[in-house]
Design a protein around this nucleic acid. Structure first.
Lengths: 243, 243
DNA sequence: CGATAGATTGATACTGCTCAATATGGGTGG
DNA sequence: CCACCCATATTGAGCAGTATCAATCTATCG
């Protein structure tokens, strides 16, 4: 839980504040929630599809993703998550999960019983509105992913996904703007873009050759944000970040 | 407006009732909303990306879709909508639209000022919860579309999309279960599945040859639901239809 | 130092795209 | 009712982007 031992809900509250007007009583209501703090290794499942869910996770550190799989077993990542994200808020209203949640890196997170969170949300309209907004933004991001996977070629598809990830990390206050390392494997990127890890590797090679990104032990890093943005036609409007 | 002249909100109320517990006062609140009834020809835009939105549309008849486009102009449909669907509920919380809404067929719909709907939603928690659920379901459907477009081959991708559309029509009470005609062009189907209309046409030919679907002047029709479901591994769980 | 996950690279196959023509089925003006 | 128009459907040929399959290489970790 690192520096948040004094207030483990700080990342979530920061996110809620960026979403909507929140007052001190709202913050207090969140802080009063019961929770358990947990660690996960990379690749660990926090939620499985079809599983009955009675709690939500708040991601504190590390990266997680949501994904689904075809009958054949091909994995498709549908979103990435970072510090402050509330995973599976859906469990407030639906008992069964329709997708998996899995860590990409090591992670720490809080587990909050859905019924307690639901009680707080019902009592505090500001929180309800913030979470509803978050649900809409989620939807907007999924729409962009459908477009990305459906209509862009491999190269710009990867570039777009990387831009989004970096932009969201920046917005969440992780590292200097657009300079964070992206600790994903070729397979992760392939599963997020609908490509194979082999092809992803070749395209990453292209992007490195063009000096748009670099690769080091921590993962990928965007080194020419402007050209990455242009080459993938990344426009962050769909993230609805402006509060 | 057809047979709904007495209660134009009936389709919306039916949908809300399927989503959540709604009482007579909730229904009355919806019925009291100001609205304008409009008709649209096929292909007409109801909302454009980046446009400032101050109202929502309730679809009464016909089919509509939401879509986005790449910088190159390739269109990607991200969802279809039928009778009772509330289009762009997002305008309750965000002023600018991040996608387009366009009719696929002729359509009739209601336009309701966002601020009035917002007022009613704020006053009636049941309605707020129903709409939040709807937002979650939207998200779940988008996730399935990311999977569909990202990881299934053309044939099952089309089959899956058709199954979903027919299933949703059935749930909305349109026609006999799974027997409704699907009045989409090859281009519409291509834009929904990330394929070209040429390739869609070839794959549709395959499905017809295999006697899974037929084509007539009204569009496509699924004639062997079980095999369509199996071939596309369509599992409606993600639609969260059970109230 | 072996074990392993992940990265790379090469060769080959195939799905789906592009471009280009032609066919059809309604719908319209006269 | 006819000739024409337009959107859509259909078909063919050739090509491009990605997938597949199979090694090999390279860090990192116990």
């Amino acid at each position: 839980m690192s520096q948040d031992n004094d207030d483990p809900f700080r990342p979530l509250i920061a996110k809620l504040e960026a979403l909507s007007e929140i007052d001190e009583r709202d913050r207090e209501a969140v802080r009063s929630l019961p929770f358990i703090g947990l660690f996960a290794t990379s690749g660990e499942y926090l939620v499985r599809e079809r599983q009955r869910e009675t709690s939500c996770c708040v991601l504190l550190e590390g990266i997680a993703c949501r994904h689904k799989a075809t009958a054949r077993g091909d994995r498709q990542i549908v979103s990435f998550h970072v510090r402050g994200d509330l995973l599976d808020a859906q469990s407030l209203l639906f008992s069964k999960s329709d997708h998996n949640i899995q860590t990409i890196t090591q992670a720490s997170y809080l587990v909050v019983p859905s019924e307690d969170l639901k009680r707080v949300v019902d009592a505090r309209p500001n929180l309800a509105e913030a979470l509803w907004r978050d649900t809409f933004i989620d939807g907007s991001i999924f729409r962009e992913w459908v477009l990305n996977v459906g209509r862009r070629d491999g190269r710009s598809r990867i570039a777009h996904m990387l831009c989004e990830f970096v932009e969201r990390c920046s917005h969440a206050g992780l590292g200097a703007p657009h300079e964070i390392a992206i600790p994903m494997t070729r397979a992760d990127i392939g599963d997020a873009t609908g490509l194979t890890h082999v092809h992803v590797n070749r395209l990453i090679g292209q992007l490195v050759a063009e000096a748009l990104i670099t690769v080091d032990r921590d993962g990928l890093r965007i080194v020419d944000w402007d050209r990455m943005r242009d080459t993938s036609a990344f426009d962050p409007a769909y993230l609805h970040e402006a509060a």
